[in-house]
Deep mutational scan, measured.
Amino acid sequence: TLFEALYDYEARTEDDLSFHKGEKFQILNSSEGDWWEARSLTTGETGYIPSIYLAPV
């Protein structure tokens, strides 16, 4: 399942991933609670993103 960003997000740590509204992600690991490891389909970068900023596509 792909997810789309509902809002912009600016990374706060080196493990976080910055993204823009409308960016799409492949989720790599969603077992860490509210922060999911994801790969951006726009940039190819991976990192942790807040799941509350996402909606399934």
Score class of each variant (00 low, 15 high):
Tyr7Trp: 12
Tyr9Ser: 03
Arg39Met: 12
Tyr9Gln: 02
Pro56Lys: 07
Ile52Phe: 13
Trp36Leu: 06
Thr43Lys: 03
Arg12Pro: 09
Leu54Val: 11
Gly33Cys: 10
Pro50Met: 13
Leu2Ser: 04
Arg12Gly: 08
Asp15Gln: 14
Glu23Ala: 06
Ala11His: 06
Glu45Tyr: 09
Ser30Gly: 10
Glu23Lys: 01
Asp8Val: 03
Ser51Ala: 13
Leu2Gln: 06
Leu41Pro: 02
Glu10Val: 13
His20Ile: 12
Gln26Trp: 14
Leu28Val: 09
Asp8Gln: 05
Leu17Met: 15
Ser30His: 11
Thr46Tyr: 08
Asn29Leu: 06
Phe19Gln: 00
Trp35Thr: 07
Leu17Lys: 03
Gly44Thr: 04
Thr13Arg: 15
Phe3Gln: 03
Ala11Asp: 02
Trp35Ala: 05
Glu45Cys: 12
Glu37Cys: 14
Gly47Thr: 03
Ser18Gln: 04
Gly22Gln: 02
Thr43Asp: 02
Glu4His: 07
Tyr7Cys: 13
His20Gly: 09
Tyr48Val: 08
Gly47Lys: 03
Glu10Phe: 10
Phe3Thr: 02
Ser31Ile: 10
Tyr48Ser: 07
Asp16Lys: 15
Val57Arg: 03
Glu45Trp: 08
Leu41Val: 09
Ser31Lys: 11
Asp15Thr: 15
Leu2Pro: 04
Gly44Leu: 07
Asp16Glu: 15
Phe25Pro: 00
Lys24Ala: 06
Pro56Asn: 05
Ser51Arg: 13
Glu23Gln: 07
Tyr48Glu: 02
Ile27Cys: 03
His20Leu: 11
Asp8Trp: 05
Leu6His: 03
Ser51Cys: 11
Asp16Pro: 02
Ala11Val: 02
Lys21Phe: 05
Phe19Ala: 06
Asp34Phe: 14
Thr42Trp: 11
Tyr53Leu: 14
Ser30Phe: 15
Tyr48Arg: 14
Pro56Glu: 09
Gly44Phe: 08
Trp35Tyr: 13
Thr46Ala: 07
His20Asp: 06
Glu10Cys: 12
Thr43Tyr: 02
Glu32Cys: 13
Trp35Cys: 10
Gly44Tyr: 06
Phe19Arg: 00
Thr42Asp: 11
Gly33Met: 12
Asp15Asn: 15
Thr13Glu: 09
Ser31Gly: 10
Tyr53Lys: 07
Glu23His: 06
Ser51Met: 09
Ile52Lys: 15
Ala11Ile: 02
Phe25Val: 02
Tyr53Arg: 05
Ser30Leu: 09
Ser30Asn: 13
Leu6Thr: 06
Asp15Ile: 15
Tyr53Val: 09
Ala5Tyr: 00
Tyr9Glu: 01
Ser18His: 07
Asp8Lys: 04
Asp34Trp: 11
Ser51Tyr: 09
Asp34Gln: 10
Phe25Gln: 00
Glu4Tyr: 14
Glu37Val: 15
Gly47Arg: 04
Trp36Phe: 06
Trp36Lys: 02
Pro50Gln: 13
Ile27Trp: 01
Ala55Pro: 01
Glu4Ala: 07
Thr46Val: 14
Phe19Ile: 09
Lys24Gly: 03
Ser31Trp: 10
Leu6Glu: 03
